[in-house]
């Protein structure tokens, strides 16, 4: 019920095309990662799905065109985790995560006991219950990222859009965040569409990859199909070695020219 279908989607900024005639289908419960060099249009696609930028073409979520949904209904269907979430200083983790319940409230509505129960459960699942009363500006980088994921999960939306979830995290925290998202995806049958910069991690956690170059889709498939040395070399201009790790995924390692 939470598949995402993009048909002939184009997005432009001030007359400059950023995404061109894109067709893409993401099955319910699937994790699809958008990869590609800088400026390929990965973030723009996520923003178009979340209706944050105007687009041409059709985007359908669970059978409903996003253009026909009210803002609140759209937010009930899609949660977005932006690349650098704004964490208001002085706001507590609980208050921040509770804002995720906004799509379920009326314009001037107040959170019900059900909303508080949902948030409490999300905090517990993400091991944030001990930090509920802590101010966001007093969290570590990893804790902030978990708080942002918690807020997105509190929305209760079946589709999760994630923009570069591991930026500025060390390798351990990158792994933790992606493991967490993957675990939640399986538990809650979430459909995940992520813009990923780190190719090895994208290949290891995603069901499929979509390689974009200058707003066009140039390859889709599993990590083994997309992450090949000729493909990466051709589209990233990078010298890499792709190593098959015997059932543990694919590693993309840059080598010195």
């Amino acid at each position: 019920m939470s598949s995402v279908v993009l048909t002939s989607v184009s997005v432009g900024y001030e007359g400059r095309p950023v995404v061109r005639d894109l067709d893409l289908t993401v099955a319910s419960g699937e994790w699809l990662s958008l990869i590609g060099p800088n400026g390929a249009g990965k973030t723009t696609i996520l923003r178009a799905i979340a209706r944050l930028v105007p687009f041409q073409g059709d985007i359908v979520i669970g059978g409903h065109p996003v253009t026909g949904l009210s803002s609140r209904n759209l937010a009930r269907g899609i949660a977005m985790l932006v690349q650098e979430p704004q964490m208001p200083a002085g706001m507590t983790v609980a208050q921040y995560v509770l804002l995720g319940r906004s799509p379920h409230l009326g314009y001037l509505g107040r959170e019900s006991s059900h909303d508080r129960r949902v948030v409490k459960d999300v905090l517990r699942r993400l091991a944030l219950d001990e930090l509920a009363a802590r101010s966001l500006d007093k969290l570590s980088g990893g804790e902030r990222q978990r708080a942002a994921i918690a807020r997105a999960l509190a929305q209760g939306a079946p589709v999760l859009l994630i923009d570069e979830p591991t930026t500025s995290l060390d390798v351990g925290r990158q792994q933790s965040v992606l493991e967490l998202i993957d675990q939640l995806r399986h538990e809650q049958e979430l459909t995940v569409i992520a813009a990923m910069h780190e190719l090895t991690l994208a290949g290891q956690y995603s069901d499929r990859l979509a390689l974009l170059v200058e707003g066009r889709l140039v390859a889709t498939g599993t990590a083994a199909q997309v992450l090949t040395e000729p493909t990466i070399s051709a589209h990233y201009g990078a010298e890499v070695r792709v190593i098959d790790m015997n059932g543990s995924g694919t590693a993309v390692v840059p080598v010195r020219r």
Binding site: R47, A50, R51, L52, S70, S71, R72, N73, L74, A75, R76, I78, A79, M80, V82, P85, Q86, L99, G100, S102, P103, Q155
Partner: peptide
């Protein structure tokens, strides 16, 4: 942030 607010409906 503006995008976060909008994506909350």
């Amino acid at each position: 942030g503006e995008d976060e607010i909008t994506s909350l409906g």
